[in-house]
Write a protein that binds this DNA or RNA. Sequence first.
DNA 1: TATTAATGTGTTATAAGTACATATTGTATC
DNA 2: GATACAATATGTACTTATAACACATTAATA
Lengths: 241, 241
Amino acid sequence: MKTAALEKISHIDYFNIAVSVDCVIFGYECKQLKVLLIKSDLEEFKGKWSLLGDLVKPSEDMEDAPYRVLQDRTGFQDVYLEQVYTFGSIHRHPSGRVITTAYFSLVDIRNHKLDDLTENEVHWHPVNEVHQMAFDHKLILDTCLDRLREKIMEHPIIFNLLQEKFSLRELQDLYEAILGVSLDRRNFRKRIALKDWLVDLNEMEDDVPHRPGKLYKLKPGLRKAYKAVPKKIANRKVIPV
Amino acid sequence: MKTAALEKISHIDYFNIAVSVDCVIFGYECKQLKVLLIKSDLEEFKGKWSLLGDLVKPSEDMEDAPYRVLQDRTGFQDVYLEQVYTFGSIHRHPSGRVITTAYFSLVDIRNHKLDDLTENEVHWHPVNEVHQMAFDHKLILDTCLDRLREKIMEHPIIFNLLQEKFSLRELQDLYEAILGVSLDRRNFRKRIALKDWLVDLNEMEDDVPHRPGKLYKLKPGLRKAYKAVPKKIANRKVIPV
DNA sequence: TATTAATGTGTTATAAGTACATATTGTATC
DNA sequence: GATACAATATGTACTTATAACACATTAATA
């Protein structure tokens, strides 16, 4: 398998950096955007929270690694995942040279209950209340949050955070939680209507202490556990001048 | 430096993947978007073109590596660089397990002459005419081209491909070359005017075989050799609904 | 039955985007 | 030197999107 080009350099020169993935797992609950964190297991960051991550295995496609991490550490399957950025400062990891590729994930908390048996150090945190983190994970979180904010404006990914049926008020609350702004209800509805993402279910909420709203779901085919493959990136639309 | 957590796993488990960067270096010449390529030095890809890249050094920040590659292989300095995506399929490199982080770069060809002495296997190619490439480099090129197309619509980075002084016709030609579409001249000018990126130099072209157009330059402070740091990403604007 | 708090839908004004026409200026040609 | 030419430069009408804002409707509650 190896070629002359590789033989020229020694193993120590070649394999000198460890490669990991870190998952910024977003959820939505109680009108708050949340992120799934775990207590750091490193002495240097005792008491600090960190993202769920792991080294990429030699026999594993990079893009499969975050799915494995989610599956193994939370039991979640079929989640939305998207690669965001790769962080590679020399001293970002105290244990050695590790570069990490950050992915963000969107899960519906109510349909993805944490398995208490496996890891009880994993908890949902309101994104707004997360300040100090282990490693450079706060930077990674902020970077992913920003990508999320961009993306939800044009792509129907936000529905991965909601249950199948939802009201427009729930959807607006979610947008407001992510963007950190308050939106005009009438303009919001108009904008959503323009996007043509939703199907009117002709059903009403039945669990609210006020006038129930109409229920919608995402149009069939739009809600997917997108694979974080470059093709998706390459197919973005370009708006001509 | 090493901690208990790291000691648990062996060196071979930890450092099992090589890390490289690949640069998609865009230039503009003769009304064509071009990319700087080199003949592959691998037997497997004999005759195929590949991107300029190198392994990340153990003592080097990831984001410094593409600058080093450009400096060493082309002599270019102070170029615009932006991280795009990290590619990590198992078999993407025939010599072993290598993941690579792709950056794109924008250089003014006329002000960045290639040093013939160092490497004469490096050539500018019209992007449209590049089809087969070594490794997964065609996918990387396409991914970076797509990111470029997105980015130039809202951010004043395209000027890194032009000389300091330029006419609106030159700018429009460049947009058209990158986007692969033809644009209405009057609407284009209106849109550029709205962006408020340019300074009218009150000078005219003097090297054209027809009526000369007015010359502009980018507003001071906007043309920069942006460092490809996450901060830049994190500061993107969000448009509320 | 009246109150309240939420849902649901309009209207108008402003700004941005699109399609299209005409005048102007310097070069080249006869 | 007059004329044709080709490119620059600017303007107008139409359509669509965004933003600010007001009122009617419905179900739970007091």
